[in-house]
Design a protein around this nucleic acid. Structure first.
Ligand SMILES: [Mg+2]
Length: 360
DNA sequence: TCTGGGGTCCTAGGACCC
DNA sequence: TCTGGGGTCCTAGGACCC
């Protein structure tokens, strides 16, 4: 795949920005979107507006902590319906470019603009101008030779930034960044890289031989780390995506202690999973139950059925049976139900067993 | 005052197969 | 019959992403 040009478009503080757009009195004030909008409840911050961030409020922070750090902020519930509508208008602007598009959640997308006549930077600027004038919102855009670099670039100058990293600059631009900047390197991997190799930056990581990384992380992750440290990413911008699983989970405001209450909750979640499955045109053969105890230890039990299911009663029966396999001797804070091994109603052939390998 | 909800992919061991 | 090598499927857990 030689000489691609990829854009990564990322809306700035998206949920909070949409709220400030539709409620002008919130503009210029710290806004925290998360959970049900009540900072005394269990929940985390989905998005903090830029006015809230200097107080140390950011995505993933418990709402109660956010309230302590910034009690003057306006706390709002997540309103996916509203964000989805704006998201669709943003995607329409991106599709207008004629580029192949891969969306990543509601507010991010990759575009492969390799075959368009305009340079990537000009396309990026035009997208930002349309988002500003038509949506009254700002987006940051990164331009690079692949998705990995484009995504890193979009994060370098936020908000409303435009960052271009041409192929020849990739090594120098990535080298000083912390390894957690890389897609797929989170806190655990970063801590291990630091402990084992003394690695902190992408440049440090690029200095570790492939063999050493594979010894430590296995053949796949080792090779992956070796590649991304060099800004190498061949993955295509992929428009279509078949879902692998459908799930529903819920954290209770007060931990559950009665087994009968847990069974009722599991049946309810299973019913919603079945509804979602049918609505999306799928059925499933594997059901997984997730139980998180008050201690935060999480266990799961799953079972693969002899035939597909997509109805509420069957899903509930299987999920409740899985709950009865878990030793529930402590309070439970979360229950979840997931359906996987999906078969599409439209293209009924599920991924069957591949052709038998020839005998040795 | 702890730690959401929707997902994806990987690992690892045992069962089973060629 | 044994050993080895390559698969797949299943389950449980974990890391990571937005
Ligand atoms: Mg964003």
């Amino acid at each position: 795949m030689p000489g691609r040009t990829i854009l990564h478009v990322d809306m700035d503080a998206f949920f909070a920005a949409v709220e400030q757009l539709r409620r002008p009195e919130l503009r210029g004030r710290p806004v925290v979107v998360g959970g049900r909008g009540d900072p005394s409840e269990r929940g985390v911050v989905s998005t903090a507006s830029y006015e809230a961030r200097p107080f140390g409020v950011h995505s993933g922070l418990p709402l109660r902590t956010a309230y302590q750090r910034c009690p003057q902020a306006v706390f709002l519930p997540v309103d996916f319906q509203a964000y989805r509508e704006v998201s669709e208008r943003m995607h329409a602007i991106l599709r207008d470019t004629g580029a192949r598009l891969q969306s990543l959640g509601l507010d991010e997308a990759f575009l492969d603009v390799t075959d368009l006549p305009e340079p990537g930077e000009a396309i990026a600027r035009a997208i930002q101008e349309r988002i500003a004038s038509e949506l009254l919102l700002t987006a940051s855009v990164g331009v690079g030779p692949n998705k990995l670099v484009a995504k890193i670039a979009s994060g370098l100058n936020k908000p409303a930034g435009l960052t271009v990293i041409p192929e020849r600059d990739v090594e120098a631009r990535l080298a000083p960044l912390p390894v957690t900047t890389l897609w797929g390197v989170g806190p655990k991997t970063a801590a291990r890289l630091h402990q084992v190799f003394g690695v902190n930056t992408v440049g440090d990581l690029a200095g570790i031989p492939l063999e050493r990384l594979q010894e430590e992380y296995g053949p796949r992750l080792g090779a992956y780390l070796h590649r991304i440290a060099r800004g190498i990413d061949e993955s295509p911008v992929q428009t279509e995506w078949e879902p692998r699983s459908v799930s529903r989970e819920h954290t209770f405001q007060v931990d559950l202690r009665r087994i009968e209450a847990m069974r009722e909750a599991v049946a309810r979640l299973a019913g919603r999973v079945a509804d979602d499955l049918r609505e999306q045109g799928y059925s499933a053969t594997t059901v997984t139950l997730k139980v998180r105890f008050a201690t935060f230890r999480t266990v799961s039990r799953s079972c693969t059925l002899p035939a597909v299911i997509d109805d509420r009663a069957a899903m509930a029966e299987v999920a409740v049976a899985l709950l009865d396999k878990v030793v529930v001797d402590r309070p439970v804070r979360l229950l979840g139900v997931r359906a996987s091994k999906l078969a599409s109603a439209r293209s009924p052939a599920p991924a069957g067993p591949p052709a038998a390998t020839p005998a040795p």
